[in-house]
Design a protein around this nucleic acid. Sequence first.
DNA 1: ATGCTAGTTGACCGTTCGGTAAAATGCAAG
DNA 2: CTTGCATTTTACCGAACGGTCAACTAGCAT
Lengths: 200, 200
Amino acid sequence: MNVATDTRSRIIAAAKPRFHSRSYANVGIQEICESAGVQKGSFYHFFPSKRDLVMAVIDEFADEWAHGFVAEAFDPALPPMERIDYLVDAAYFWQKSIKQVHGRMLGCIFGNLTLEVSTQDDILRAKLLAIFSRAKSRFKATLEEAVAAGTIAPLDADLTAEAMLAYLEGVILLAKSQNDPEVIYRLGPAIKTLRVEKAA
Amino acid sequence: MNVATDTRSRIIAAAKPRFHSRSYANVGIQEICESAGVQKGSFYHFFPSKRDLVMAVIDEFADEWAHGFVAEAFDPALPPMERIDYLVDAAYFWQKSIKQVHGRMLGCIFGNLTLEVSTQDDILRAKLLAIFSRAKSRFKATLEEAVAAGTIAPLDADLTAEAMLAYLEGVILLAKSQNDPEVIYRLGPAIKTLRVEKAA
DNA sequence: ATGCTAGTTGACCGTTCGGTAAAATGCAAG
DNA sequence: CTTGCATTTTACCGAACGGTCAACTAGCAT
């Protein structure tokens, strides 16, 4: 069982950076297997299909974020609005370090996959949507706390949270188009100027 | 020459909706040729490579926008800030009509392609970057006009323009993840709340 | 020791991929 | 009437694609 777990996670470990740095369609099972030192038949013992692999990869990225930067950023000890700054900073430093190692800005794997596959695979789209939905909830709770604390004027927390998430993804997209994480540094802080007023 | 032009444009016409609704990697030359009623050898007479085709497709989309919605939105007769509203509205109605016909929200082809290929093909990335750069210029000029007219308080027009473009792309991304153009309707108007202050 | 099962192997499936080359066709200018 | 060029056709290339299958191995419980 330990060996089994190891093979499975070696496959995922080989797939992660590839899906992140290229695209879903551009990464083949064969390449992943070679890199993981696993036979193709063995791959299909653990994953019924390529889609199931990428779902596992999505989960791993999500967990990594949830227990890493996101947990740090949304620390209840921090003043609410500073959490958002922290998150944007984290995105910036992460992309910057990736570029230093890899030579390229890879962007957000959830955004990347969303635009690539969501017209072709509703199951993947739903998976990605769930990730975004959780992210939005974090923003929303933070905004509600900030409003309650009087840090910011009352607003529509739900829509503003969604707007902030959209902005973050958009900034990362633009940064990727320039292959330059500094775009995140320059544009990121403006996230706090976004506001959707409460409906009358 | 007329026949030649026709073949070439039939190829592009077949390729456009496919690249828009699926992805670069997922659309094959063969399929495009079949749909256009063109032989593969004939395809390679007009396009040296698949990449050259997608560049032509990008140009067509860019022209279509530039002479359509964008020209309408950035009408100098309109008050500057209303132009931005107009553009967001145009994006909304366009995506909505696409969904009515096609059943899916396809999003922005420039954003889609950017996230898919920009780590793998610097020439395509540069092409897409140029598109974004022009779009940003439109926003910037509009913002400068609004500041000059006293409609909005002075700000860093360059960075705010970039932020607005990022936000628009992000909103479309999120809408695509939900396969729902109404997201653009709900979040779009908040674009005007974005501000980057002038550096001291 | 035997039988069951999870895991592994490597060969194989048909299909599609982007791209090539040579021969055939159509057409227009000299 | 012929030369020359742009266009088109057809057949083909090697490689890669996602996925399947039957045979084999190893470990563990009865």
